[in-house]
């Protein structure tokens, strides 16, 4: 049995969880005049899939010891939201915050997060939610793994760590099935939304979690980034138009006819929906 809290090379396990703060999706509008996103007044929350990622990391910490760092790129207002993660059991927050990071797409985001992880020192596992509710791209985890030259397992519902062999096994969900993959550490793990139940905050930790020294803010110069790779400047993609999608409310369309007629319509709808 390996000593608790140590990885086989003799140092403490280090799990990193990438988290972000997003506006509640149903409260975001497109301003019909300016055609820009109107987030004003929208309530924020931690991106829900990131909570599943944090829970997975905390379960490993419960079992193997070590520490859990929360890494996030965003404006200073993220801070109080992220501290929720400390009250759940994470150890420290690293917030990558700089005006220069603004407007980042997947390439610039993954680059900046990767620089942050490199600055953190030795890391065993990096956890991400499977996607963010604002962008829903799901491309950050593999991009991050690429910048870091880490292995990856995406869309994972369960992980097992083998401390002796320094490998991680994950159950990766695929349409109509799953696969068990094994990769060496360090690795990036993207966690399936809803695969676990994030623990509620331990209020005994709250005063500790809200102490100023729990958060380290790193700017572009702290990270020594190549500035052509961050923010708007480092983002190949541009948003050339925005529109409000049709309402998210249920359609409430009544279908009528004989069972056979209804069945035909439903079969058609199902085919479209499940293509």
């Amino acid at each position: 049995m390996w000593p608790t809290g140590m990885s086989p090379d003799g140092r403490e396990w280090h799990f990193v969880v990438c988290m972000k703060v997003v506006p509640k999706p149903e409260e975001v509008r497109v301003d019909p005049e300016t055609r820009r996103l109107d987030r004003a007044g929208a309530r924020s929350e931690i991106n829900p899939p990131d909570m599943n990622a944090l829970e997975m990391a905390l379960q490993l910490k419960d079992r193997f010891g070590g520490r859990v760092s929360i890494l996030s790129m965003g404006p200073p207002f993220f801070e109080p939201y992220l501290r929720v993660g400390l009250a759940m059991g994470a150890d420290h927050i690293y917030l990558l915050s700089d005006r220069k990071f603004g407007g980042a797409d997947t390439l610039a985001t993954t680059y900046t997060l990767a620089r942050g992880i490199q600055k953190l020192g030795p890391v065993d596992l990096v956890f991400c939610g499977e996607e963010s509710s604002d962008g829903a791209t799901g491309q950050v985890p593999p991009g991050l793994a690429e910048w870091l030259d880490f292995s990856q397992i995406t869309l994972v519902t369960r992980v097992e760590l083998d401390p002796m062999r320094r490998v991680v096994r994950g159950r990766r969900e695929r349409p109509g099935g799953y696969e068990i993959l094994e990769v060496p550490l360090p690795a990036v793990i993207s966690v399936k939304t809803g695969c676990n139940e994030p623990r509620f905050m331990d209020y005994r930790l709250k005063p500790w979690a809200f102490a100023p020294e729990r958060v380290t803010v790193w700017s572009a110069s702290d990270l020594e980034v190549d500035e052509t790779f961050v923010g708007t400047a480092g983002s190949p993609t541009q948003v050339s138009g925005l529109a409000q999608a049709p309402s998210r409310e249920r359609k409430r369309i009544r279908l009528e006819g004989t069972p056979e007629e209804i069945a035909r319509v439903l079969a058609e709808r199902l085919r479209e929906l499940l293509r």
Binding site: K24, E26, E27, R43, E197, P198, R199, F200, M201
Partner: peptide, 23 residues
């Protein structure tokens, strides 16, 4: 199981029923 989620719903949604606060 399930009770942490109820508390999170109160925390993020301001209700224990997982409903959007803006509704």
């Amino acid at each position: 199981r399930g009770l942490s989620s109820v508390l999170w719903s109160v925390y993020w949604n301001n209700n224990p029923w997982f409903q959007p606060p803006s509704y």
